[in-house]
């Protein structure tokens, strides 16, 4: 069995993008760290179904910082991509999350750049509300 990976990687070129989104008002002064940014990038990539292979890997977050909830999200993405029987293959699971994050961070930055400074949160809110309504409409899960 493969060794448990000790860190999560991002593409080296994405480092700049992560730094950039840290400057967005919505991500400032809220105890949001690298791990959180990685998760949101992954979620954004997942939502837009964009995953890209990493060209130049660079360690970004130590896996020990991931909590139960973070793993829940990463694992859900993995299950969705058919890795349910291989969830104990952490390397594969994280690789998938990294690819979504690689796709997501670029989209997120483009999105932030496309709106006026300070208004991203309002756009993001609107997008989430629409998405939430959409999820309710489909009722793919009875529990919502």
């Amino acid at each position: 069995m493969a060794e448990f990976p000790d860190r999560i990687y991002i593409d080296k070129d994405d480092k700049e993008l992560y730094e950039k989104i840290k400057e967005e008002e919505m991500f400032q002064d809220k105890d949001i760290d690298n791990k959180d940014l990685f998760i949101i990038a992954m979620a954004y990539g997942f939502k837009h179904e964009v995953k890209r292979k990493l060209d130049k890997k660079e360690g970004y977050v130590r896996t020990e910082y991931l909590n139960r909830e973070d793993w829940g999200l990463i694992n859900s993405v993995a299950v969705n991509d058919g890795l349910i029987d291989n969830l104990n293959d952490r390397e594969t699971v994280l690789k998938l999350a990294e690819e979504y994050a690689h796709g997501g961070i670029k989209l997120l930055c483009d999105y932030i750049d496309s709106v006026q400074y300070g208004s991203f949160d309002r756009q993001f809110e609107k997008e989430l509300l629409d998405l939430f309504d959409e999820l309710q409409y489909h009722k793919e899960t009875p529990e919502i």
């Binding site: 919505m26 949101i40 997942f46 299950v79 809110e125 793919e140």
Partner: peptide, 26 residues
């Protein structure tokens, strides 16, 4: 600030929610 943090926290869940639903079903 609280709202932005809320959007952030909810955002990652809502965006991944289809996967979460699928995981629950599986």
């Amino acid at each position: 600030n609280e709202k932005q943090k809320l959007l952030f926290d909810y955002g990652k869940i809502i965006m991944v929610y289809p996967a979460i639903m699928k995981s629950i079903q599986n």
